[in-house]
Design a protein around this nucleic acid. Sequence first.
DNA 1: TAGATTGTTAATCGATTAACAATC
DNA 2: TAGATTGTTAATCGATTAACAATC
Lengths: 220, 220
Amino acid sequence: MIGNENAVMRLLQYKDTLKKLKSLGFSKVFSDNLADTVGVSPSLVRKDFSLFDISGHKRGGYRIDNLVERLDQILGRNVTQKVIMVGAGKLGSALMNFRAFEEEHIRIVAAFDHDEAKQDAKAKIPVLPMDGLRGYIAENQIQLGILTLPEDAAQRVADIMILAGIRGILNFSPLQLRAPRRCIIRSVNLELELEHLIYLISRTLEDEEASEEDSGRKDD
Amino acid sequence: MIGNENAVMRLLQYKDTLKKLKSLGFSKVFSDNLADTVGVSPSLVRKDFSLFDISGHKRGGYRIDNLVERLDQILGRNVTQKVIMVGAGKLGSALMNFRAFEEEHIRIVAAFDHDEAKQDAKAKIPVLPMDGLRGYIAENQIQLGILTLPEDAAQRVADIMILAGIRGILNFSPLQLRAPRRCIIRSVNLELELEHLIYLISRTLEDEEASEEDSGRKDD
DNA sequence: TAGATTGTTAATCGATTAACAATC
DNA sequence: TAGATTGTTAATCGATTAACAATC
């Protein structure tokens, strides 16, 4: 129940799928269906559920309503989460308006930026000066921050956030942030993702060339 | 050499670290150093290298220059990659100006959007109408696209890209895109990442409460 | 030489799959 | 009842770690 982070990511995917199925009018689902849409084996779906003490009905599958409710419980998604955006540059502002967040009980309550030109305390999501960051976190008991600062400022500002009591940071800077155990860092490294894709492509291209040795060359 | 995608991600991280070390004036490195900065075991570093036929010097470690060169080779990063941006909304435009891409031989050559207000053929990175997407990919032999469209348009446009001969798509829509084997899809699901973080936080909070049963409660 | 580090092998660990008894 | 699906156990698979011989 504690260890498996892959299982948690799959649980999140199951939940997404279930919501779609529900909106299509389904009320129950089998491990087979979920496995298909998420792209894993039915065994694994059942294993994941059993890992988190989720049970269904022999022969009757799972009731979608129950399942979603239980998943929300496990995943800590039964209350709206307040999140701050640290850095209001291009990426930060883009994420501030990200649709999917609103739909999922995730609410960005304020943003912080050093640049005065970007500050606007009256905006729907106020953009405040960096000075106020520490106080805001502490006063409003903010647990979660999204960090979209450039590499050179990232660690310094992260330290401030941690000092103020933040519990988790979703980090978009390419830096591997250091943090004490009470604050969890998850990083999304966009450059790395793209480079990974480049690797995968270059590998399939090699494979194709290799397999053409046998089959002769087709005209282009 | 073929299977392990985790190893590939680590290779990319090693490369990043090596560049930083190099800019700090280092010319050689030991598996220990790399392990430390990336946060893995030295064994694993050596194992990863051996997996890709990278060798160093007994007792002398690895020469950073050689290593970076070899990694670029393996990772397909020895040529500049042309990439198109499909969708020029907030997220798309943010990524178009993403610093880290420029530094890594990744060049975004054009963007496409349905919205006329966003189109601008004269911009540094031209924003073109969606009609031109298929032709542009075919004529310029574009291999890579970044997809930042909303869910409802994502699959339809991805199909067009695939038809035109694209080889890889970095997908930011929350949809699990379907594609034939010749096109590789990698997805970044920002909502999922944030929800994962929420789960991790809610779990550590529970743990703390649990451990307070023993130790008594500290005042807040 | 003595000491340090690589490269590889074998051991361990953990996650996934396959199989099947339980049961609706 | 016969058939289908869950939940769990054991088997498999793959990735990581530990250990150490080779060697600079």
